[in-house]
Design a protein around this nucleic acid. Sequence first.
DNA 1: TATTAGACTTAGAATCGCCTAA
DNA 2: TTAGGCGATTCTAAGTCTAATA
Length: 778
Amino acid sequence: MATEARHDGYSDDDDDKPIAFRRSDHNGDSEDARSLSSIIFRNTPLNRRPSKIVEDESDDDEVPIASRLQKKNDKQDSTDEKNSSTLENEGAANKVSGKRLLEKGSSADQSSMKKLKVSSSSTSVSMKQDSLKTGKQGDKRKGKQLSVKEDETDDDDDVPIAKRIKSSNSSNSKKPPAKPKVGKQSSTSSATKSKATRVVSPPSKTRSKKSKKVIKDFNYAKSSKSLPSGDGKKKWTTLEHNGVTFPPPYEPHGVKILYKGKPVNLSPEQEEVATLFAVLRETNYYSKPQFRENFWNDWRKLLGQNHVIQKLDDCDFTPIYDWHLEQKKVNSKRIYFFNDMQVKKASRQKEEKYMWAVVDGVKEKVGNFNVEPPGLFRGRGDHPKMGKLKKRIHPCDVTLNLGKDAPIPECPIPGERWKGVMHYDTVTWLAYWTDPINQGFKYVSLSASSTQKGQSDKKKYEKARKLKDHVDHIRASYTTNFTAKDVSKRQIAVAIYLIDKLALRAGNEKGDDEADTVGCCTLKVGNVECVPPNKLKFDFIGKDSIQYVNTVEVKPAVYKTIRQFRAGKSNSDDVFDELDTHKLNAYLKELMPDLTAKVFRTYNASITLDTMLRQETRDGDVKQKAVVYQQANKEVAIICNHQRTVSKSHGAQVERLAGKIKDLKEGLKELTTNLERAKKGKAPLEGADGKKTRNITPEAWEKKIGQQMMKIEKVERDMQTKEDLKTVALGTSKINYMDPRITVAWCKRHEVPIEKIFNKSLLEKFAWAMDVEPDFTF
DNA sequence: TATTAGACTTAGAATCGCCTAA
DNA sequence: TTAGGCGATTCTAAGTCTAATA
């Protein structure tokens, strides 16, 4: 069915291209290749995988993204067993078409499509009553409260058997300290000397009702007996850090807003919130009714019912906005003054203390040591909570995670103290507080360049590589089930097909207090249209309220099944009404250990990159090779639907380039005329600026013409690239989906300095991948 | 079995800061 | 000197997924 590929949302532009991939003359073992990578690359044993050569498939266009990429050149490489062994992708390099729309207007209405979630409030209320009564609103979350245990002796009874088995099997299950941690504060801390920080129980999902007891003395530190959550595996043995920093307190500016044209006095607290609103004047939020309503509800609480301000629409925030612009201007200029540079340096030095943690004796960078400042919630899309006031976080909201013997950091705000300290070695976070908007947790963790994150990253890509060995079987399995009698089975089969073929996200259920977005399992009838004879047209709002629009040709059995699932339902009904992500992932685990829906995205992204780089890389300079990489990166970004908004200046930039092309073309015309004149022995014409042009030989004019044409080509290429990438975000796939070892190996094979592809941050993040052999295959 | 807390990854927007051209 | 462009970095929202719990 070779023709199908042309209709399933992928183009077959490459079909008539010459077989592309040729190995560089330098293999990875060459001296050149080694010297190239002398600093970053170190040769380590090849990460070999079982050899597997798959013969051409007859039905490639029905095969999901990755496998549709061709392996034309594998045979060329077959002398290199390691390199050719695992490519299994067929057909032309396919391209997802026609889905680069940021506008959401055409998307099927997803509102009122949400399922009602069954409330557990009745049970959680009683739980709350039994639990800790610290009186802190921030402790509450979804029917659960943080507890601080009073009696720690009878711990294991509270722990489920499965968890206890795990605990006894690993050293990481060592119980948290039985003794209170009082007095573990830094000796320099005056605030914390007087008020001992509590050692509280963690936000553990293993905590049972029995453990939830009221702490009588807030200042009395207690150890936690609750077992940690996370995956239960030990993440560290010793952990030290200096806590987190807080934004400076609000400094009132005294600029008055106008109410019905008259200046109004505001208290510092009221002014602070008014300023948070005023500075957003040039954003889309400012005019959104939902944003304004939520802001007004929260601001009004601060103003009080009897305040002179009774209506938001009668407020004029211009004076504060102007003040804000002025401040911005002043601040941008201040940097040029020596004193301000000094101030900046000093503040950096102050931050330095919080930038690092010591994990098992190794100094690691902390990712986000600054606590989020107060603000107005900026939920994406049509988030029902947008505009709500995000209150200021204080040290008493923040719980730290530290090694048992680590000193408790001094609280950075004099007179205040941490909410608590725990010693929770099966999680990676260093601190957390409760998100005042969504009652979830906000974590402070190590940076992306840390060993911990690196290992986790590597594990992720190894799992995706493993999928390659199972994917044929998985595809055979879901294909068989397209016609299963059992509806659930059929729904699982079709859902996995879509996840595999289109790299859709799993699609968890969402609540009414979240933006109305969908993924595969939550697709509504209105999101999928059947276009005869066998195409599906998708139009829905996905993660981050980014629209996904795509029309693809699918297997007739899939088309028929989707039509059945839609039959007799309204637009707001679920397509997969017998399916959720739990069932889907449970099924995937039967096919491959630890397999979940998201692994398909990583797999498809990485295999697409690997295959495209092998096919498309030609001899040429580094710049040309970098363009090939960018093209492959773009392909992956399109598959994953990674979009960005068009920059405000895009139009002007393109216009400028168009003007440049026009000028260059006029110049070319002049050059051609002068060439003709030179051939006839005539002097060249005057330049456009009226200046006399030097008389040169026809050969010299020809050379100039060649150079001019190259200039034109370059600017035209730049303009095209700019246009092509105006809505495509390349970074997300580079950071999260494409196995960095593919990139590193390709750089080694083709003598492209890795710095041309990875910036400083990525080099640090992917340090674990730098040793890969040049013949690494995903 | 369904629900959801908790921990983590993934995501686009906003901001920063360096460079270049006018 | 300034403005603008643009890649890098920071910020924090919004997903996924596991396992406890009702």
